[in-house]
Design a protein around this nucleic acid. Sequence first.
DNA 1: GCTTTGACGTATG
DNA 2: TCATACGCCAAAG
Length: 113
Amino acid sequence: MPDSHRRVYAAIAAIPPGRVASYGAIAARAGLPGRARLVGHLLGQTPDGMRLPWHRVLRASGHVALAPGSAGFRAQCRLLRAEGVEVKNGRVALWRFGLDADLDRELWGLPAE
DNA sequence: GCTTTGACGTATG
DNA sequence: TCATACGCCAAAG
């Protein structure tokens, strides 16, 4: 297991429950800016024994990355809603649940809602 | 090795 | 909001 992969897994595992992060944010946090596709690739190759909060990883647009209607898509929506994250039409409001939004609030004092 | 694919991202129109 | 183009790079064939 390459070190870069471990950092990606660690970054995903660090997402707090009830919050979400984009592939790009995970890659950047893992020290791999611009390697968002690597994150997606790893999630598809994640070993069975590894229990990761993969459902908290979304596209930069806030959309669920999996095909709408697929089993994985439904599972992700269910897991997210179970944590209090609103999923509307396969999309999450990043300005509200994203980690970046949290940081922005602290920096600029933007309203939480 | 080269080509194709893919749970992606940003820029443009 | 949707489509297209381009950049990115690990795996699979």
